[in-house]
Amino acid sequence: METVKHYLTMGLLFISLFTVALFSLELFEGRKISTTLYVGLNNGGFSLMLVLSLLLGFVIFLFIFLPLTFILDKFLPSFLIKLIVFSAIGCLGGIGVFNMMYGFQGGYLITEYDLNINSSILIFGLAGLSYALFGHHLKKRTQSSKKCSTS
């Protein structure tokens, strides 16, 4: 039961971090876009972005981060490796999200509004780092509560 609770908590954490990272990216880069072709926070797309980020976060967690977290927890208990892996995946995910949000129409928005992909890499890399740190803290807390209950 504790394992299910742990991974449900990690899922909620991931979806929250992904949503915050997506909105942060939109605040840093999307606010530069002033065309009506792009529906962002400036053009009243808050609820659309919220729903899509929650759904996309759930799908990414379910198919990528849940299996990866489970495998790393089982076979690679090193905290440092988890930090590196989740941060790197966050950075790569930041590249994908940036291209998904702003790279359509041949990258017109990126070149026309001078959008910087480095902010996306940094934001999503920090989200991956936060995911690893919180997961480590949660696991230590769970293990210490098990020790206290068996004593």
Rank of each mutant, 00 (worst) to 15 (best):
S130D: 05
Q143A: 15
I64M: 09
L55Y: 02
F70E: 03
I84Q: 13
I121N: 08
F18H: 07
L83M: 15
N118S: 12
G103P: 09
M101A: 12
S87E: 09
L54N: 04
S151Q: 15
K5L: 06
K5Y: 03
E2A: 12
Y38R: 11
F58Y: 05
S47Y: 09
L109N: 07
S151E: 13
S78N: 14
L133H: 07
V85E: 10
L126G: 13
S53F: 00
K74Q: 14
T150G: 08
S78D: 13
Y108V: 12
G106R: 11
L52Y: 06
I15P: 00
L13K: 00
I84E: 10
L133S: 14
I121R: 10
T3W: 01
F18N: 05
G125W: 02
I110T: 09
F23A: 02
S130F: 14
S120Q: 01
G30W: 01
G106P: 08
E29D: 04
I89F: 12
M49S: 08
G103N: 06
S78F: 10
I110W: 05
E2R: 14
E26I: 02
V59I: 14
K5C: 03
I110M: 06
K139M: 10
G103D: 05
N118I: 05
S144D: 09
E112M: 09
G90K: 03
L13C: 03
F14A: 11
K146W: 07
A88R: 06
L25P: 00
I81G: 14
M10P: 05
I121K: 11
I121W: 04
M49K: 03
T9R: 03
L92I: 06
G107H: 08
R141G: 15
T111L: 09
S149M: 09
G44F: 01
K147R: 15
K82T: 12
L48Q: 08
G125R: 04
T3E: 07
L8H: 04
L109P: 07
L8D: 02
H6W: 02
D114K: 14
T69S: 14
S145F: 06
L68N: 10
Y108T: 14
I89D: 05
I81A: 15
A88K: 06
F104P: 10
